[in-house]
Design a protein around this nucleic acid. Structure first.
Ligand SMILES: [Zn+2]
Ligand SMILES: [Zn+2]
Ligand SMILES: [Zn+2]
Ligand SMILES: [Zn+2]
Lengths: 170, 170
DNA sequence: ATTAGAGATGTGATGATATAACAATCGAAA
DNA sequence: TTTCGATTGTTATATCATCACATCTCTAAT
């Protein structure tokens, strides 16, 4: 595996490992642009700008954090501006909502249909996105047993990322 | 297995199956009372009343739903009343918070340390609580791979419960 | 009995997150 | 160029959660 690989094709979490994040961002934006083009979706300026804001790091941002960052650049947009852009990005898989934090992160494995697993650092709010295949299987098996029909899943583990573990209070 | 079994010892979800719910409630309250006694915790009137409210069904209630139910019975308590009681119940495992709904359910497998799996009906908000052992193992394995130290986990599947599946829009 | 301290509750205010409603604008296509 | 659906702008409001501080209530020394 190429150590400089972008998000796609990487086996696991890019978020907690040192990587060429500039490339990471560029790839995600270009993915989104390409996917929108082929799927007939409109990646409008606001939507693209919000995606860029989320892509500045792998840290989860609240809707009002995003809003403040938009504000910094001139006018004073209202909450629906941020929520609508975030809803679009989440609906089409360019970003994910982290329920535990009421916050949002850019997707690091875009353009696939997935309900990923998230590992969320309680110190720095960095979020690693992992494929959910084995866990999804477990959930499906349990669901079948009780006659439950699964739509979407939320799988989030909260804890400490490798960086924040060093020097943590024993 | 005794078909009239209470929550403890039942292999799976009591919430979606017909069962003697009066017994279910009574057992949960008595469990809480007993556990508080032995653990030196104070199951005060407000806390017990909130637990009873949650135990009226296996449907998740928001903090303000609980608050309204308390209100029905006389005075007009303020939000912290409900949140403090819910925090106590969650902290000691008598109830769980459902992140996806910003809501709370009574625990149906009390007095064990657990981060269960929840199956949440999007129609009726009923919540089934399942043991999480296999999924927890998967998560630990993935976490170890990327150097992440898991504290707590949130595993919630949203979908349709058996009752709400019948006659659903194809 | 008295009293100090911890835990729990009552109460008002505020913070944080999210959506409703409707007008104005834009863009693709007829 | 007209039309219509999607998007954005804007005001207001709904929903979820916590802060701060006074009061009360147990308990356990003294
Ligand atoms: Zn990156
Ligand atoms: Zn961290
Ligand atoms: Zn029951
Ligand atoms: Zn249901």
């Amino acid at each position: 595996m190429d150590e400089a690989d972008g998000p796609r094709g990487s086996a696991g979490s890019v978020a907690f490992a040192p990587h060429d994040h500039a490339r990471c961002r560029r790839a995600a934006i270009e993915d989104a642009q390409a996917h929108c083009k082929t799927a007939g979706l409109r990646l409008t300026p606001v939507r693209e700008r919000v995606l860029e804001i989320l892509l500045e790091s792998h840290v989860a941002l609240g809707a009002y954090d995003v809003l403040r960052r938009l504000t910094d650049e001139g006018a004073v947009p209202q909450p629906p501006i941020a929520y609508r852009a975030l809803d679009f990005l989440v609906a089409h898989g360019f970003a994910h909502r982290i329920e535990k934090l009421n916050a949002y992160v850019a997707c690091t494995a875009p353009c696939e249909r997935h309900d990923p697993v998230f590992m969320i650092c309680r110190d720095c709010r960095a979020v690693a996105e992992l494929p959910s295949a084995p866990i999804a299987r477990d959930l499906e098996r349990e669901a079948a047993r009780i006659g439950f029909d699964i739509g979407r899943t939320v799988v989030e583990a909260e804890g400490l990322c490798p960086s924040c573990r060093v020097g943590e209070t024993a």
